[in-house]
Simulated scan of single mutants.
Amino acid sequence: MIELTRLNGNPMVLNSDLVKTAEASPDTMLTLITGEKLIVRETCAEVLERVMDYRAKLLACVARRLPPGVTLERVVSVSTLQNPEDPACRPETPRRLNQC
């Protein structure tokens, strides 16, 4: 969840996994996967930074909870087995964490 500010100044907390697109026109308009549109005071760059910070914190938390000898890299490569037909999801292929 990331904290953002509506145009009227009211703070809100948003599940960042619901954001489909962010556009500056000139205000920042977020389109959610539900089709709902939100206009916020933060710039697209600020929204992106908050999403990346939030996801980094989640990954760090997961990494701390892994059993000894298990790495986050191994967990990510095993999770790609959900779609083994996709070449981008094969463990030997470099990829972004959320690509698969």
Rank of each mutant, 00 (worst) to 15 (best):
P68Y: 07
P67K: 14
I33W: 09
T43F: 04
S77P: 00
L59A: 06
P68D: 13
R41W: 07
V76G: 00
V62P: 01
T80Q: 06
R41E: 15
P68A: 10
V51Y: 08
L18E: 13
V70M: 15
G69L: 09
V62W: 04
C61P: 00
V19A: 01
T28L: 10
R41L: 10
S79T: 09
C44A: 07
R74F: 05
S25I: 15
I33C: 02
R65V: 00
E36H: 10
V40Y: 12
E42F: 08
V70W: 04
K37R: 13
R50N: 12
R64M: 03
P68F: 02
L72C: 02
E46Y: 08
Y54D: 12
P68M: 03
T34S: 14
L59W: 05
R41V: 09
T28Q: 13
V40Q: 13
A56E: 12
P67Q: 12
M52C: 01
T21V: 08
L66S: 08
A22E: 12
A63H: 05
V19G: 05
L30Q: 06
G69K: 09
R50W: 05
M52T: 10
A24I: 15
D27E: 15
S77R: 10
R50Y: 04
V62D: 00
T28W: 11
L66P: 04
V70F: 07
D53I: 04
A22S: 14
V78N: 06
L48P: 00
L18C: 06
M29W: 06
L30S: 05
L38E: 02
C44T: 15
T34Y: 05
V70D: 05
M29Y: 04
R50I: 04
E42Q: 14
C61I: 00
A24R: 15
E73R: 14
L32F: 09
L38I: 11
V40G: 07
E23S: 10
K57Y: 00
Y54C: 05
A63E: 15
R50F: 03
C44I: 13
I39D: 01
A24H: 09
G69H: 07
E36K: 13
V47T: 09
L59V: 02
L58H: 03
R50V: 07
E49A: 14
L32T: 10
E23H: 15
P26Q: 11
K37F: 02
R55Y: 06
V75E: 08
T28P: 10
L59N: 01
T28N: 11
R41G: 10
E23T: 14
I33F: 08
T31Q: 08
L32G: 03
L72N: 06
L66W: 12
L58G: 01
K20E: 15
L72Y: 02
R74V: 01
V76M: 07
V70G: 02
V76E: 02
A45D: 13
V76Q: 02
V76A: 03
V70E: 12
V47Y: 08
R41Q: 15
A56P: 00
K37C: 06
T80S: 05
D27C: 04
L18N: 05
K20P: 00
E23Q: 15
P67E: 13
P26S: 09
V19Q: 11
V62A: 07
